[in-house]
Structures are given as structure tokens and as C-alpha cells.
């Protein structure tokens, strides 16, 4: 599913954010990426979404060499990835339903299909009764769940999340993580950047540890 081969990323300023990264993720795996602040977690996820291009090395996602994907094919790659952000990035001038429907509008899904799938996604995150609400009227945890519903509504084979629980209290964090674990159960590959070591250990999934742009560990803790 994901194949990193000796990948490095040097930003325009000359800073080497990632250095010689090599690893594989199988389809249907759930993997945490952790490490100190500035270790390169976000950069790694950005490379997957072709928000940044690698300076060296090869990244293959679902058979596509991301370093060589042409500009006009980038949207096609991104449609196969559901992205969840720390600050959810919901559009505040639209209701919950319209936010979740966004990825479907991009591929031009019909009205009925859109309604069906948006409701299914909202149901999964337990917010079916809030579909007409404005995002600003939701709690932080609810907003994050809307963001997750938006990421999964297009049924992408891969979900990547950058610190999805960064703003949440411990109990909400566990709920959100369990939500991701559910997606893994139905075959979705899930990649989550987080530095909540306690939570990561609790989940008992595979963990990639970054340190100054290098992969220093790759292990699976026993579930607590």
C-alpha cells in the first residue's frame, strides 16, 4: 500500500526534515507515527498527500510513484486519501452536512447518493442529528468527528490524520482513536501522527518513531 524507499525531504530553507526514510505499510494496517516536535511527522504525511514532493528517494502509494506523479494527476491521488487535521479545517460558512459532502461534490456525485453517503458517514461518527448545525456551534470533539466523517465519506483506501486528538481531552481522544480503529477493521489503511505516547501504547498498533528526520524505531506494543 505504502512504500518508502530511502526518502529524504529538504525544505527550501535547506533544513533536512526527513532523512533516508524506508518502510512499508500493508493495506489494512493501522500505524502511528510519533517523535519529538519537529521530528518530521507532518512532513511525512505531507509527502503522502503530495502537498510536498520528496527531495530524494521513492514513495509508492497504491502503485503510483508519488515523486513522479504529474501535476494534473495529483487530485486523483488525493481522492484516494482521507485527510484529518488537528484543527479539523471545517468550512465555517457551511453546515455540517455540506462540509461532509465536500469530497463527493469534488467527484460530482449525484444528489441522492451524496445524501445517502453523508448520512452514513455522520451516523458512523454519531452526529446524524446535527447535520444542519453550523460547525461553530459544535464542541471541539464534535467538530473533529465531523472532520473525520468528511475524510471517510469518499471511502478512501487510506486515511491519514495529523494529530487528530491534539486538542481533545484524554477520554475524547480514546473515542476518536477507537473510531479510527473501526475503520481499520473494515479494511481501511490508517496512518496517524501523534505524540500522545500513552494513547499510542493503549491502542497496541504498529508505531514508527522519528527522530530528527530519521526512522529510529518500528515496533508494535502489546495492548495495555
Amino acid at each position: 500500500m505504502i512504500h518508502f524507499d530511502n526518502v529524504s525531504k529538504r525544505y527550501a530553507g535547506g533544513h533536512e526534515a526527513l532523512n533516508g526514510l524506508s518502510f512499508d505499510v500493508e493495506a489494512g494496517e493501522m500505524v502511528f507515527v510519533t517523535g519529538h516536535s519537529g521530528a518530521g511527522k507532518t512532513t511525512l504525511l505531507k509527502l503522502l498527500g503530495i502537498i510536498e514532493r520528496p527531495s530524494r528517494g521513492e514513495i509508492v502509494l497504491n502503485g503510483a510513484d508519488l515523486g513522479r506523479v504529474r501535476q494534473r494527476s495529483i487530485p486523483q491521488v488525493r481522492r484516494g486519501i482521507g485527510m484529518v487535521f488537528q484543527n479539523h479545517r471545517l468550512l465555517m460558512d457551511r453546515c455540517v452536512f455540506d462540509n461532509v459532502a465536500l469530497p463527493l461534490g469534488i467527484v460530482g456525485a449525484g444528489r441522492e447518493e451524496t445524501a445517502k453517503r453523508v448520512r452514513a458517514a455522520l451516523d458512523k461518527v454519531g452526529l446524524l442529528d446535527r447535520e444542519r448545525a453550523a460547525p461553530a456551534t459544535l464542541s471541539t470533539g464534535e467538530q473533529q468527528r465531523v472532520g473525520i466523517a468528511r475524510a471517510l465519506v469518499g471511502k478512501p483506501p487510506l486515511i491519514i490524520a495529523d494529530e487528530p486528538t491534539g486538542n481533545l481531552d484524554p477520554q475524547l481522544s480514546v473515542e476518536i482513536m477507537n473510531l479510527f480503529a473501526e475503520f481499520q477493521q473494515v479494511g481501511t489503511t490508517v496512518l496517524i501522527a501523534s505524540h500522545d505516547l500513552h494513547l499510542i501504547r493503549h491502542m497496541g498498533k504498529r508505531v514508527l518513531v522519528l527522530d530528527h528526520g530519521q526512522l529510529i524505531d518500528d515496533f508494535r506494543p502489546q495492548a495495555a
Binding site: 512504500h3 524507499d5 521513492e58 509508492v60 497504491n62 502503485g63 503510483a64 510513484d65 513522479r68 506523479v69 504529474r70 494527476s73 486523483q76 491521488v77
Partner: peptide, 10 residues
């Protein structure tokens, strides 16, 4: 390693 296709499967 998966085949390094240059084009994304449409």
C-alpha cells in the same frame, strides 16, 4: 515493491 507506475490509475 509495487510496480512504480508513472501514471496514476484513473
Amino acid at each position: 515493491a509495487p510496480p512504480a507506475n508513472q501514471s496514476v490509475p484513473r
